[in-house]
Amino acid sequence: MKKVIGRREKINLPDWDLWGISGKVDTGAYTSSIHSEYAEMIKKGDKSYLRFTVLDRRHPKYTGNVIETDDFTVKSVKNSFGEAQNRYQIATTIELFGEKFDAEFTLSDRSRMRNQILLGRKTLKGRFVVDVDLTDQSKKMAKLAGSRKHGKGTDLPDTI
């Protein structure tokens, strides 16, 4: 069963110790992206690594932690204006609705956007159905699960 996801959701990124980051659900975008102000490729011996940070420095959950990975690619992505850009693409674990799964993100400048994370179709496919009238369903479902343990009920949809 697919879960109902809203147009905006709180996303956890446990590999990076980031919790409750607001992300925009965008069925028009194929690839997910996350804001990064710093990304550079470095060499260690004959191996290439990518060093980067995520989130805007002004974001309340910005840590400034530099993340390093050798699991990255460079991908050509069309931006919202239809222009092709080369971006680094990385993989990490995300958590939504209490479930963890792997997702790929391109690193991009989202400083002018309201949300630091954009969830595209590739991440959503096979897992979620989007209801644009809703927001923060993952957070609400977590509260619901706690309420059910204490005998309280609610009429929130969780799957279709």
Score class of each variant (00 low, 15 high):
R87K: 14
A103D: 01
R110A: 04
K44I: 14
K3V: 01
H59L: 03
K10F: 13
W19T: 08
K44R: 14
V4W: 01
F72A: 11
Q116H: 05
S80V: 06
Q116C: 03
N115D: 15
K152T: 15
L134H: 05
L13M: 09
R112N: 13
M141K: 06
A91G: 07
W16A: 00
S147A: 14
D133N: 15
I94S: 04
E83S: 13
G153N: 12
T135N: 08
R127E: 11
R51N: 13
L156Q: 02
Y62P: 00
T31D: 10
K47M: 06
T93H: 05
D26H: 08
I117E: 01
R51T: 10
S147L: 15
H59E: 05
E68D: 07
G6F: 02
T69A: 11
T135E: 15
Y88R: 13
M1R: 05
A145W: 10
H150E: 15
K47F: 00
I5S: 01
R127C: 09
L50G: 07
D136N: 14
D109V: 10
E99M: 08
S147P: 00
R87S: 10
K43F: 08
F97Q: 05
K140I: 06
G28E: 03
T135Q: 12
P157E: 06
G23I: 03
T63K: 12
T27Y: 08
D158Q: 11
G126N: 14
N86A: 13
L50F: 06
F52T: 09
R57L: 07
W19Y: 15
A142Q: 06
L13Y: 02
A91C: 10
H35S: 09
H35G: 08
M141R: 10
D17A: 09
R51C: 13
G153T: 14
D155S: 10
K149F: 12
W16C: 01
L124P: 04
P157Y: 02
G146C: 05
N65F: 09
R87I: 11
